[in-house]
């Protein structure tokens, strides 16, 4: 058994939630390409998911959508709020004293993260190492370029390997 597709207003809620959870600050906005329609992503995910998880996801969407009423005491849905208010509402839900609420919202965040980082350029940007960082041990660069001097790594890595085979004898 499958749930019906998301309605247009549910898709709008999904976009609003996604836009708030993954709102890029000005210094990052240019680096993060738009991953596409979060409403469409959510609809496809619901269609593929088994019934019980799909029900949970849909329930979470409704909780997020109607939360302004309880969190801000304002008669509005999440989609009609300013970004800062949406962020405040979702932050409050994530810290809610009711376990089921905060767990469902965490699940929604985890699911939307799949959409947010599906573009390889986003993953690359997030994983980037600061150019001005001073590495305490530059393991990676030295290992990738064995001809480069590697003195700083020798102690830790060789001692690590020295402990390798203990578990084989368990």
């Amino acid at each position: 058994m499958k749930l019906p597709h998301l309605t247009s207003f549910e898709r709008e809620w999904a976009r609003a939630v996604f836009g708030a959870v993954f709102a890029a600050p000005p210094e990052l906005a240019a680096d993060i390409p738009d991953p596409g329609d979060a409403g469409e992503f959510m609809d496809v995910a619901l269609a593929r998911a088994p019934l019980e998880p799909a029900l949970g996801i849909r329930l979470t969407l409704w909780i997020c959508a109607l939360a302004p009423l309880f969190v801000l005491r304002r008669f509005a849905t999440i989609a009609s709020l300013e970004l800062s208010d949406r962020v405040a509402v979702l932050d409050a839900l994530g810290k809610n004293r009711i376990y089921a609420v905060r767990q469902l919202v965490l699940g929604m965040k985890a699911m939307l993260a799949l959409h947010f980082a599906k573009d390889a350029r986003v993953r690359e940007r997030l994983s980037r190492v600061s150019e001005d960082a001073v590495p305490a041990r530059s393991l990676r660069r030295e290992r990738r370029a064995p001809s480069a001097p590697a003195a700083s790594t020798s102690t830790s890595t060789s001692s690590a390997t020295g402990a390798v085979n203990d578990n084989a004898a368990e």
Binding site: A20, A24, L28, D91, L106, K109, A110, A113, L126, S127
Partner: peptide, 23 residues
């Protein structure tokens, strides 16, 4: 990053600023 994002605290700008330092 897709899996790490669920472990990173916060939402909105706070989340993205931390996420941008996954490296």
């Amino acid at each position: 990053p897709e899996l790490a994002a669920a472990r990173v605290p916060g939402v909105g700008h706070d989340l993205l600023r931390r996420l941008s330092k996954l490296g």
